[in-house]
C-alpha cells in the first residue's frame, strides 16, 4: 500500500511505530455460545464419602482396604442432545480429590436440553504423548515413562489392604497406554443449558466399582500392582466403564 500524501505517510509511520513497539499479543476464542457447564465430581467408596488412609472399605472380593491416593484424567466429554446427536468438548481434566481438583468447566455448547454425558477415563491418543500436557507438577507426576510407551497415567489408585493374615500390604492400581483408554458408558442427565446462568451438575465415582463387574478383583489373588502388566490393567479397564453415575 502506497501512502497518498506526506500526511498519510506520517500517519502510516506513526501507526507502524506504535504497533511494533508495544508487542501486544492478544488471542481470542470465538465461542458460538456464552454457555457454561460445571461438573462437580465426588468420590465414594461403598456409598461412603472417600476418606483417605483408613482401612475401612471392603470390595466385592472381601478385601478390606484404604486409599492413600486417587488421581486420574477425564477427557473428551460429549453431551447428548435430545435428538441423540452429541456435542463434543475437547480437552483433558485432571481430577484429584485430595487436592480438591474435582470441578470440570465446559463452555460454548449450544443452549438447550441435554440428556446424557459420556467421556473417557484417561487421555485420548492424540494427547497421550510424553510431554504434551502442560508441565504442571500434577501432569509431570502422571507421566508414563517412554521406555513403557510414553504418555500419561490414566489412573493412579493406591492404598493398603489387609492380607489373609490381617497384615496391611500396599496396592497400586495404575492404568496407562492407549489401548487401556476407558470409554465410560453414557450417564443419563437432565441439563438445561442457557446463556444466562451457569449450569451445574454432579457426577460421583464409586471406587468399589473398579473391583467388580464384570471381574471381581482380589488384591491378594490377582495382584496388588498393575502398572505395565497388561492382563491386570485390562481387568481394571473392563471394570471401569461404569464407575461414575449421576447421584440421586
Amino acid at each position: 500500500m502506497k501512502p497518498k500524501s506526506p500526511w498519510h505517510l506520517l500517519l502510516f509511520i506513526g501507526i507502524s511505530a506504535m504497533i511494533f513497539s508495544c508487542k501486544k499479543t492478544e488471542t481470542s476464542t470465538i465461542e458460538a455460545y456464552k454457555t457454561n457447564l460445571q461438573i462437580h465430581v465426588s468420590h465414594r467408596v461403598g456409598g461412603l464419602n472417600l476418606l483417605y488412609d483408613t482401612i475401612k472399605y471392603t470390595n466385592l472380593a472381601g478385601n478390606k482396604y484404604s486409599l492413600t491416593l486417587l488421581e486420574y484424567y477425564i477427557s473428551e466429554i460429549s453431551l447428548r442432545k435430545e435428538d441423540n446427536s452429541y456435542v463434543n468438548c475437547q480437552g483433558s481434566f485432571y481430577i484429584n480429590p485430595a487436592l480438591n481438583q474435582v470441578n470440570i468447566q465446559l463452555s460454548g455448547m449450544a443452549p438447550g436440553r441435554y440428556t446424557g454425558i459420556k467421556f473417557y477415563i484417561g487421555i485420548t491418543p492424540l494427547n497421550n504423548v510424553f510431554g504434551v500436557l502442560e508441565a504442571t507438577t500434577e501432569n509431570t507426576n502422571m507421566q508414563w515413562p517412554e521406555p513403557l510407551g510414553g504418555g500419561y497415567h490414566f489412573l493412579k489408585m493406591e492404598g493398603r489392604y489387609l492380607d489373609s493374615t490381617n497384615i496391611p500390604r500396599g496396592f497400586a492400581m495404575h492404568i496407562g497406554s492407549n489401548e487401556m483408554l476407558i470409554q465410560h458408558q453414557i450417564i443419563p442427565v437432565n441439563l438445561e443449558v442457557n446463556e444466562q446462568n451457569i449450569c451445574f451438575t454432579n457426577l460421583v465415582m464409586e471406587v468399589n466399582e473398579w473391583f467388580k463387574n464384570p471381574y471381581t478383583y482380589n488384591f491378594e489373588k490377582d495382584g496388588n500392582y498393575t502398572m505395565a502388566i497388561t492382563p491386570l490393567m485390562n481387568l481394571l479397564k473392563n471394570n471401569g466403564y461404569d464407575v461414575f453415575s449421576k447421584p440421586e
Binding site: E158, R160, R169, G170, A172, G223, N224, Y225, I229
Partner: peptide
C-alpha cells in the same frame, strides 16, 4: 511395615 508407601510394594507383595 504398615507405614511403608504402597508404591514400595511390588508385584505379588
Amino acid at each position: 511395615n504398615g507405614y511403608v508407601d504402597p508404591l514400595m510394594t511390588k508385584t505379588n507383595g
